[in-house]
């Protein structure tokens, strides 16, 4: 039996310990805000926070996440929209939107590490997250705006 905290709720799981966190969140818990895009840590659609830092949930097993605190897109705005989400809305970032949960989780994590990110920091922090619709320019603008706001 593994213990894992997801969005502030303590849970126990006795299924396959190798089950990637992504599928535990999506298929077992029904937290479908976190997306599947590649299953190989290549696209970032599955990004969640583990103890406050962005990780790829598709390559993190439930057993590896045991004892950790996991936060998903569903809980990032529990006290009203996060400033990053606000800027995403203000800049009309999403097209299809499928990648955006992962982009937002990644951006929040980036801004924690680099509150005033340069273009290179943004490239470095965000280039693991693919947006096939091509919203990168707006993502960059929204991150800069969020950085301005939280400073």
């Amino acid at each position: 039996m593994m213990q894992i905290k997801v969005n502030d709720v303590a849970r126990s799981f006795d299924g396959d310990p190798n089950l990637p966190l992504l599928w535990y969140l999506r298929d077992v818990l029904g937290l479908t805000g976190t997306k599947f895009g590649c299953g190989m840590a290549l696209c970032g659609a599955c990004t969640v926070h583990q103890d406050g830092k962005a990780i790829r949930s598709c390559v993190t097993s439930v057993s590896a996440a045991a004892g950790k605190e996991i936060t998903t897109i569903e809980a990032i705005s529990k006290n009203g929209l996060h400033v990053v989400q606000q800027k995403w809305i203000e800049y009309n970032v999403p097209q299809c939107g499928y990648c955006q949960s992962g982009q937002i989780m990644q951006a929040i994590s980036l801004l924690k590490e680099k509150p005033r990110p340069s273009d290179e920091d943004i490239d470095g922090g965000m280039s693991g997250n693919i947006c096939r619709c091509g919203t990168y320019q707006r993502i960059r603008a929204a991150i800069k705006a969020a950085a301005g706001e939280q400073a």
Binding site: G33, E74, I89, N92, P94, S101
Partner: peptide, 12 residues
């Protein structure tokens, strides 16, 4: 802006 904008940014 998209009718679904907020939902797209909140995982809903």
């Amino acid at each position: 802006s998209s009718y679904d904008l907020v939902d797209l940014c909140t995982g809903k």
